[in-house]
Amino acid sequence: MRRFNNLMINEWLKLSKKRMFFMPYVLLILLPLLVGYIVHSVSAELFGSAFDFSSTMLLPNGIGQALTILAIIGTAGVVSKEYGQGTIKFLLIRARSRTAILASKYVIVLVYALTLTIVTTIAVYGSGILWFGLNGGEAGFSEILLSVLYGFVYTVVYVTLAFMIGILTTSTGVTIGITMFAITIDKLVISRDFYKYVLFPNLNLSAYEGNGAPMRGMTLSFSITMLAVYMLLFLLAGFVVFRRRDVA
């Protein structure tokens, strides 16, 4: 276990020693303040309180989306940069299995996404208090937490996708490109029955709020199952390829 901890420390340092490491955090603090200001100046009555503002903004189609994009950018290089910089050679000639090395990278990707989510949640809530106050409104803490959960699921699925593409393509640019393209088209709905088995309509679990559904015939448990299956596929593909690939 101590060995795995050390691998994770390594991965965290590789992320956090970068000069631009704090940029996403700064953006995710400034963005809610700005959005709050704009919404408040356009229509101050739109949100009753900080709780209303936060539970809406943190959804995958609000500020949650910006959070996901920044998490993807951070994730894209975790494996592919090792190939790009050539450091993969020094990384893989140690007495550690490739599986353990890749697993430590994935755990750190999840930790990174979690820290971004926590910072964003606090920033959005703070912005809500600043512009809309704590009184009134309908929502409470539980609504905020639920929105955070929806947002986090969306982010985790996307960083897992980016993680896999990063392994398969070994190119940071291509990884960001493909994943961003996926984000831009994931709101499209194709009204055919097969489409519910595609990843995209299952991504935003908040669609089930108030007895709704993204498409007819879909349920919350169906979507959760689909997401789990896709995540497993992504990870399986990533680990199998990483373990077997020749470093030429």
């Binding site: 060995r3 050390n6 691998l7 420390i9 390594n10 340092l13 590789k14 020693k17 970068k18 000069r19 910089q85 050539g86 450091t87 050679k89 020094f90 990384l91 140690r94 007495a95 550690r96």
Partner: peptide, 21 residues
């Protein structure tokens, strides 16, 4: 020999120290 360019020489060596018993 390729290293993490944004880290110091010592930080790079420590990476490999943590991967070795």
């Amino acid at each position: 020999p390729e290293f993490y360019p944004y880290m110091t020489g010592l930080d790079n060596l420590k990476q490999y120290q943590r991967m070795t018993d």
